[in-house]
Write a protein that binds this DNA or RNA. Structure first.
Length: 736
DNA sequence: GAGCACTGC
């Protein structure tokens, strides 16, 4: 094992951190307890120091120390820093593991990794044999994967489990919030608090937005006013403005120039600066070369004003920030199981999130946080904590992962915050529809194959179908392109927008038009075979960063498929049909839950039982051709004024005819016993009888007629009316 | 004829 079990000095510089004086107590606490919670503000050094202390104290004798992070960059940069402090080469004693980048060896003892990679590790080795300590970091962020890990590690592998020689130790690190709840969750384990080293931030409520202003987008205007106010009346120091998204940020930046002009500031369009104020937008899909300026200090006498999304709250740290202007809103993706859709909506942030934002001003000196909303807004509109991701998102992948790990009772699984039962049942229903689990709730062979692929289950299924037909080359680029961020660039300025639109239309036409999935494949191939991919992207208004990561994803998926195909029971099928229809027929196997049939005019009607009315999004290559289409499948949904489907492909009814009845074969409530693994023999018998009866009627009555009945116009409009009524009730309830 | 936060495998 390690040659250095004696304490090492490293490169120094860390001995003065607040955590240093608690060194021995911390090591003793980890040694004495199975669970430990360590809490402390940013700057306490817990992420970089604790693993080193444990290592120096010899806790690596029986295995590695794993430290999980919700983000890749964090895992990489922290590992770099720790290896430097310890004076060892990165990738040897200290390393990191993130997707596409494994910088570890089998001898690595301190391993920083993303929570997603840890989950993969567990799937391959539920006993976590190589590890002696697992440290979950940033638990207060409540990322989906960290929450799943927390539940899994609560029943931590003990001595003897799958060959473990010592029990696994679990350390949970979190900001000061909710530590009591965490301790109660982990068998009332001790909580260790480390003093932080941050500067005080004065928090001011400016009252420009009250509880009644929730719907409006007035926050853009008010935020601009506030930022200029800070610029004219506060001492030197950079400003960080928190807004909701790209278009709001662009708007705010434009307004900043205009307003600045009217209050007699010189306005220089070229470098986007008002005299004394350098205005810099910052959001995720921005090219990295444009982001660089944000991290450079402003020239002497100039104040930087960064207008950013939530990306600046956790993912990126900008030094020199002294003032925060907080809009109080965020864009959040919420899964609505009632309509079966994910909806991206603007919502007020939580109080803990507001504190997080304010904290960004106190990293290097004392700061001020200007909240554009009133104290009343704070008290009546903002929840204490952000609803954790596990309670807001589709659980299909999570439930499949749990089932594969032998957690069959996915309802009574120890969640720190339990998702609504309905969400869990919906996930089970989807897995059943994809044949990933059977009627008893057991994972099928297909389900075991699906869990290996880092894709949404539907897409996994489509890809596996293509692999069993031997035509995975067709689908691999599509699956890769669908799993990366936005491909098409949408410029902020209208004239550029037109330009981009023309080029994108040409690309769609190249792909034979009329199939957005094919267009993605076409972009992938054209870019890949071009002499200079990045220039090709620039010329075609395509995000090079996105396509580049699609290349990596494709390679990864290809490798996984290759491995899976070597299993001797990997399914093999032959395709009888037109080769031009091969791609679309494979897609149907993953997207038959997203089938829509043309209804009145240009509207379509989903066939999943919700019978929602959807429209083809204007960015689709099928837009404007609705009247020639009868049946479509779609990849995703966007809810704005209307419900839009994007990434669309026309299909023939025959391709989904035999699949659609599966959507109505089982009711969610029937799955409640499946979820709890309490399916009785009588229940199975009843079920078989019902299915037999169903098969009988299916032969006597045309299946498509039955489907039509289920999705008849009247039932759709009734469902819609019910939904709208509920929505009205909700709004009324919120207002009162 | 619209306007899409952020992560992660």
């Amino acid at each position: 094992m390690s040659k250095t079990e004696e304490p090492t000095a490293g490169d120094g510089g860390s001995n003065h951190l607040p955590i240093y004086q608690h060194r021995k107590t911390l090591v003793d606490a980890v040694s004495a307890n199975q669970f430990l919670i360590v809490t402390g503000e940013t700057g306490s050094g817990k992420t970089t120091q604790l693993p080193q202390y444990l290592y120096q104290a010899g806790l690596c004798r029986y295995g590695k120390i794993a430290v999980t992070q919700p983000r890749r960059v964090a895992a990489i940069t922290v590992a770099q820093r720790v290896s430097h402090e310890m004076g060892v080469r990165l990738g040897l004693e200290v390393g990191y593991l993130v997707r596409f980048d494994d910088c570890t060896t089998k001898d690595t003892l301190i391993k920083y990794m993303t929570d997603g990679c840890m989950l993969r590790d567990i799937l391959g080795d539920p006993g976590l044999i190589p590890y002696s300590v697992v440290i979950l970091d940033e638990v207060h962020e409540r990322s989906l994967n960290t929450d799943v890990l927390l539940g899994l590690l609560k029943k931590t592998p003990s001595r003897g489990f799958r060959g473990r020689t010592v029990p696994l130790k679990v350390v949970v690190m979190s900001a000061t919030l909710e530590t009591e709840k965490l301790s109660a969750f982990l068998d009332n384990c001790p909580v260790f608090t480390i003093p932080g080293r941050t500067f005080p931030v004065k928090e001011l409520f400016c009252g420009l937005i009250g509880p009644k202003d929730k719907e409006s987008s007035v926050y853009v205007k008010e935020v601009v006013k506030m930022a200029l106010n800070v610029h004219t009346s506060e001492a030197s120091g950079d400003i960080l403005v928190f807004l909701t998204g790209q278009s709001e940020i662009e708007k705010a930046c434009d307004l900043l120039f205009e307003k600045a002009e009217s209050i007699d500031y010189r306005y220089d369009m070229h470098d986007r600066s008002v005299e004394g104020l350098l205005i810099l937008p910052l959001y995720g899909s921005m090219p990295t070369d444009q982001q660089r300026q944000i991290f450079q200090p402003a020239p002497a006498g100039i104040r930087k004003c960064v207008v950013a999304t939530n990306i600046a709250a956790t993912s990126l740290t900008i030094s020199g920030i002294r003032y925060i202007v907080d809009s109080g809103f965020v864009k959040q993706l919420n899964h609505n199981s009632r309509v079966g859709l994910d909806i991206l909506e603007v919502v007020p942030i939580s109080k803990s999130e507001a504190q997080q934002r304010a904290g960004r001003a106190g990293r290097t000196s004392a700061g001020k946080c200007f909240r554009i909303y009133s104290k009343d807004f704070w008290e009546t509109c903002m929840p204490e904590y952000t609803v954790p991701e596990i309670q807001r998102t589709s659980l299909t992948s999570v439930v499949l992962t749990l089932k594969c790990l032998g957690v069959h009772d996915v309802i009574r699984f120890p969640y720190l915050d339990r998702p609504e039962e309905r969400f869990i049942l919906t996930a089970l229903k989807q897995l059943y529809q994809y044949d990933a689990i059977d009627r008893k709730g057991d994972v099928t062979r297909l389900g075991r194959l699906m869990v290996e692929l880092p894709l949404p289950p539907g897409l996994s299924r489509a890809l596996l179908k293509s692999a069993s037909l031997g035509c995975e080359e067709l689908l691999l680029p599509v699956a890769a392109m669908l799993s990366v961020e936005n491909i098409l660039i949408r410029p902020g300025r209208p004239e550029k927008q037109k330009q981009a639109e023309v080029v994108h239309k040409e690309l769609a036409a190249c792909a034979g038009s009329c199939n957005d999935f094919l267009e993605l494949r076409c972009i992938f191939e054209k870019c890949k075979t071009s002499d200079n991919p990045s220039t090709w992207c620039k010329n075609h208004w395509i995000h090079w960063r996105a396509v580049k990561s699609a290349f990596s994803v494709e390679t990864q998926l290809r490798d996984i498929l290759l491995r899976l195909k070597q299993q001797k029971d990997f399914p093999k099928e032959t395709f009888r049909g037109r080769s031009s229809e091969l791609l679309r027929q494979c897609l149907c196997l993953g997207y038959f839950t997203n089938v829509a049939r043309r209804s009145v005019g240009k509207a379509f009607c989903t066939m999943d039982g919700h019978g929602s009315t959807v429209h083809i999004h204007p960015s689709s290559s099928l837009f404007g051709q609705e009247l020639q289409l009868d049946w479509i499948i779609f990849h995703d949904v966007l809810v704005t004024g209307r419900v839009y489907v994007r990434t669309v492909c026309p299909i023939r009814y025959e391709w989904v005819r035999d699949l659609l009845p599966k959507l109505h074969e089982i009711d969610v409530y029937e799955l409640s016993s499946v979820a709890r693994e309490e399916v009785t023999d009588e229940e199975m018998a009843r079920w078989e009888k019902k299915r037999a009866a169903q098969r009988q009627t299916d032969t006597s009555e045309d299946a498509s007629k039955k489907l039509e009945k289920r999705n008849s116009e009247s039932s759709i409009s009734e469902a819609r009316a019910r939904y709208l009524q509920r929505k009205r009730n909700r709004i009324q309830a919120k207002d009162s």
